[in-house]
Design a binder for these strands. Structure first.
Ligand code: MN
Ligand code: MN
Ligand code: MN
Ligand code: MN
Lengths: 218, 218
DNA sequence: ATTTATTTTTAGACAAGACTAAAAATTTTA
DNA sequence: TAAAATTTTTAGTCTTGTCTAAAAATAAAT
């Protein structure tokens, strides 16, 4: 069993490894954890002692097999709880993250197994992120950013890159939801802004928006 | 917001106040918290600083109004989560306490409000203990220990005093459940053991058992 | 009313996690 | 390649919550 702090560090390293494949830097981790670099160095040493990460001074940090397993388990719990909050308790998708940050640290194998079953083994969380199964396997999805598509192309919205309440509320306000068909009617070459068709109605969106929406390609 | 430790101390003091109406002793609290008296003294001082308890050296400790409110809120959350685990996730009544000990510390007003609604505002937890409402009011129940009844008397089993997994499993094994009618057929004056009728079948139980079963009297 | 036993508090230490300030290593720039 | 800027680590301190050992206060027993 690992502490809440240790679990949060492992999760952060997991998420940063995509952007830092050669090793997650101390500063990147400090930034992600909203803490100081010196605190990160301290924690990295502890995680390294426990064989959860591979660490060489000044070389950044990488998850070990067991470190990755723990991180994935925490992510699984986080996303299952998010589904619970939205599907069962009527939370909006922009309200669940904070609470899930707490719930993800509850320790009980039976709890998570039964919760998964109660929710009917969901494959994705309310933001379209994949929920790893009990073995730690993620569903791989062919997704692409809306910003990468061109005039005339279309696809189903299946996820958000930024899942901050602000962005999610913008989407709600403009009736953009997961599962919706988006058709690109126009794309301005100067600023990459787009005119899109959503369920019959038209909407003008900036590149900031289209760069944070995932579209199913397949 | 209070720490997990602080909440657990407040809850323990609340539960001990019934047995120690003039002030909960340091040793009683140390015992309940499975810690040392010196640690209790330290914590009591911190709680006193925060006006959660009234404390005078060597005089024991009592909850303040805000301390009691916090304790009751934690108990409310504990019991609601126990209902969730049994009613929704299929846990047995002897499996829920440990997990609820963790879940009771999750901080989210909306979560507990929506959970309460999702569970249809339950009045009692799986062990028959009353769930305080959102104002902190407990349902008062006229209950008496089975051990206090005599031959010929009967009543509905509405709660357990000891809710350890061992006792609960004994009850399961002997088909004693909440809501069940119990009729006292015989009572041995020497050792207070009883012969009871349960749904048609007869069972011999010791005083240890009858002293841990609550019967509705009304 | 003393002595004895019990309870409670203090004193001092420790571990986890975090912080600031300063030193050391690395990377970038000139 | 040497100087400058950046990143990372170390050193020392702090808070929370715990512990042991010893001192002080209270309660119980002669
Ligand atoms: Mn989230
Ligand atoms: Mn999510
Ligand atoms: Mn319980
Ligand atoms: Mn209970």
């Amino acid at each position: 069993m690992f502490s809440l702090s240790e679990e949060n560090y492992l999760k952060a390293i997991f998420h940063l490894e995509r952007a830092y494949p050669t090793g997650v830097s101390t500063n990147a981790l400090a930034d992600e954890m909203s803490t100081k670099a010196s605190s990160v160095t301290d924690m990295i040493k502890r995680l390294s002692e426990k064989k959860l990460v591979a660490y060489k001074k000044y070389q950044g940090v990488k998850l070990s097999k067991s470190g990755r397993e723990t991180a994935v388990e925490v992510i699984r719990k986080h996303r299952l709880w998010e589904v619970f909050l939205v599907d069962k308790l009527g939370f909006a998708w922009d309200e669940v993250h904070e609470v899930a940050e707490q719930l993800e640290h509850i320790k009980s194998d039976k709890l998570i197994k039964e919760l998964d079953r109660f929710l009917d083994f969901p494959k994705r969380d309310p933001h379209g992120d994949p929920i790893p199964d009990s073995e730690g396997n993620f569903a791989i999805s062919n997704k692409v950013l809306l910003a990468e598509l061109n005039k005339g192309e279309s696809g189903i919205c299946i996820g958000v890159k930024d899942s901050s309440p602000e962005f999610l509320q913008y989407l709600d306000k403009n009736n953009i939801a997961l599962g919706q068909l988006i058709v690109i009617l126009e794309k301005e070459s100067f600023d990459q802004s787009m005119l899109i068709n959503l369920n019959g109605s038209e909407l003008k969106i900036s590149n900031v928006i289209s760069s944070n929406l995932y579209i199913k390609t397949s």
